[in-house]
């Protein structure tokens, strides 16, 4: 099904990507081209076929409940967490004020 510019803008809003009217117009054509092409999948008979869950047979492993066992996946590294922050203050990340 073809999408219109209003849909393009709605998707852009869901994806949090600001989009100009010109870009929305250009993207309308591109997205319709791609979506029209992938829609050929609809012709495949998938009766009784399960969606792929694991591409290679493998079991989900569970981790032991241990704090900071590996520094790469543990806490207590605030400096590293905040090192690249655009606005870090008093140990927090700063964002424009949110009104809930």
């Amino acid at each position: 099904m073809a999408i219109d510019q209003a849909t393009v803008r709605k998707i852009a809003s869901l994806a949090r990507i600001a989009i100009s009217d010109a870009d929305a117009a250009a993207m309308e054509g591109e997205l319709n081209g791609i979506l029209g092409w992938v829609e050929q999948l609809g012709e495949v008979d998938v009766t009784g076929v399960e969606p792929m869950t694991a591409v290679i047979p493998n079991k989900l492993r569970l981790r032991d409940d241990v704090i900071d066992a590996d520094p790469l996946t543990g806490g207590n590294r605030r400096d590293d967490i905040l090192a690249n922050a655009p606005a870090a203050q008093h140990g927090f990340f700063g964002v424009p004020k949110v009104i809930e």
Binding site: V66, L72, T73, G74, G75, N76, R78, I81, H90, G91
Partner: peptide, 19 residues
């Protein structure tokens, strides 16, 4: 992740790279 869950810690100290 392996970061601790205890209540009341200093901000962003119980945060891993994953979190």
């Amino acid at each position: 992740s392996g970061a601790a869950t205890a209540f009341g810690a200093e901000p962003n100290t119980q945060v891993s790279l994953v979190d």
